[in-house]
């Protein structure tokens, strides 16, 4: 066990950082709504694979960073992330055994919950939605999940993170 203490955990943070950058990259007007929830996707991957290492605290920190970056009310993404992190912490063993397609469906519903929480908070703050395209994002995220999963799995195998 002591031999494996120094595993390449830095990669987790690198991947989260890349996801954050992808989240912030400007896209043309029409395409902007299709942007998947990169940070949440990567975060969900690590929460499923390394539940003892990436958990509610990491999720909350990423949420706060997202809030700072997007200029939304501080804690808005934080609280949504925490709820998702809780759900995954509760069910990660079950999700681990699912096939990729089944996982995609679970991820879709998780990201839907996440988007719904943010939607409700924005509604309370009096900043209603401009377009229904907002809801496309969780479908796209779910479609991208298998690729995201395979890519991250490949990296973690190479770097011996597990």
């Amino acid at each position: 066990m002591t031999k494996h203490v120094f595993r390449n955990y830095w990669f987790i943070y690198v991947s989260l950082f890349v996801a954050l950058v992808l989240d912030m990259l400007p896209l043309p007007e029409g395409v902007a709504w299709i942007r998947p929830q990169w940070v949440l996707l990567v975060l969900i991957y690590w929460m499923i694979v390394l539940p003892h290492f990436v958990g509610i605290f990491t999720a909350f920190s990423m949420g706060i960073i997202l809030d700072l970056v997007e200029g939304s009310v501080l804690g808005e993404h934080g609280i949504a992330m925490i709820i998702i992190a809780y759900l995954i912490a509760k069910w990660h063993q079950r999700i681990q055994t699912f096939s990729l397609i089944q996982q995609s469906l679970v991820i879709a519903s998780l990201i839907f919950i996440y988007q719904f929480i943010i939607f409700v908070i924005q509604k309370i703050l009096g900043l209603p939605l401009n377009t229904y395209l907002y809801w496309v994002s969780f479908v796209i995220s779910a479609v991208l999940w298998p690729w995201c999963f395979i890519l991250l799995q490949d990296f973690s195998r190479r770097l011996h993170i597990n």
Binding site: M24, L25, P26, L27, A32, V69, E70, G71, S72, N130
Partner: peptide, 13 residues
């Protein structure tokens, strides 16, 4: 700065 913000608001940095 070429960054996007919250899709709910019209803001720039």
């Amino acid at each position: 700065l070429a960054v996007v913000s919250n899709p709910f608001s019209r803001e720039v940095v």
